[in-house]
Design a protein around this nucleic acid. Structure first.
Length: 265
DNA sequence: AGCGTCACCCGGACGC
DNA sequence: TGCGTCCGGGTGACGC
């Protein structure tokens, strides 16, 4: 996990930083415990590590664990206390070092948990698709045991961790699988292709520091590498056909009507 | 089990 | 120019 630094110079590593105080500008950022307890408990705790599990940023402390879900407009960055305030930094961890960890979130959808045991929240999340144990056989078995449209399945965090709308669209296009195709209908070649496509798309996103869509700049530029997502009307990079937009499970869905045939074998 | 719908939030795009 | 309205992103609650 990399925490971007705003402005010039290098931010100190987060592990080892101790929290002096927390400022909360939007109470509903804090899911639990209550804002009051959250602030009190965090004072003088030390951040021990920076990890990721699914879409959560995981900050193990000397006692307890912070979980932060950025949703789509959230952003974590380090800034010195003297730097101009960020009007969207609704939750700010002031550190003893004079630095701040700012959770900026213009649309206020993000959420923060302080838990004694992070498994209270993380236990329900599916396997990590970039881990070695996420094999094609594992994916094949998982898809075979369910009968639902492949795209909502990929988005279901209980099934596989960390795939969002962008990555589902990109992976399905790369694997040439129609977003509405039933998961148990994919043939072995399609499963193999999807396995690679999921891992490739997520790795690309990480390599590019994620995507910045709309006006919400989050440091990354993966949006410049989308093949289909948000590209309705533009040519498919494989066959040149115009990319189409449809809605699958209430989510905007972009696909190539030629490469990703609904009943295509 | 899995689908549809709604709520949450707000900047930008669009229409008048 | 200044309004009003709609959209979308991830998730959870709720009803079927």
């Amino acid at each position: 996990m990399r925490i971007l630094r705003e402005g010039m110079g290098e931010a100190p590593p987060l592990p080892g930083q101790s929290i002096e105080a927390v400022r909360i500008g939007w109470d509903r950022h804090i899911v639990r415990p209550s804002v009051r307890t959250f602030k009190r408990k965090l004072r003088e705790r030390t951040i021990a590590d920076v990890r990721r599990r699914g879409k959560f940023v995981v900050l193990p402390l000397d006692r307890g664990t912070l979980l932060i879900h950025l949703m789509m407009s959230g952003d974590l960055r380090m800034a010195e206390s003297s730097e101009p305030p960020d009007p969207y930094a609704h939750t700010v961890f002031r550190l003893r070092s004079g630095w701040e960890l700012r959770f900026s979130d213009s649309r206020k959808f993000g959420r923060v948990f302080l838990l004694d045991d992070p498994e209270e929240v993380l236990a329900g999340i599916g396997p990590e698709p970039l881990e070695a144990d996420f094999t094609t056989e594992f994916l094949a078995d998982l898809l075979k045991r369910r009968r639902r449209a492949i795209k909502p399945l990929l988005l279901d965090q209980r099934v596989i961790a960390g795939i969002g709308n962008i990555y589902a669209d990109e992976a399905l296009h790369r694997a040439k699988v129609h977003p509405r195709m039933r998961s148990d209908q994919l043939n072995p070649e399609q499963v193999e292709a999807l396995w690679g496509a999921i891992r490739f798309s997520l790795s690309e996103g990480i390599k590019h520091n994620g995507a910045s869509i709309d006006w919400v700049y989050r440091g990354g530029d993966f949006q410049n590498h989308f093949r289909v997502h948000r590209r309705a009307g533009e040519p498919c990079p494989i066959c040149g056909t115009a990319i189409e937009r449809t809605v699958v499970a209430q989510r905007g869905t972009y696909y190539c009507p030629i490469c990703q045939l609904e009943d295509g074998e």
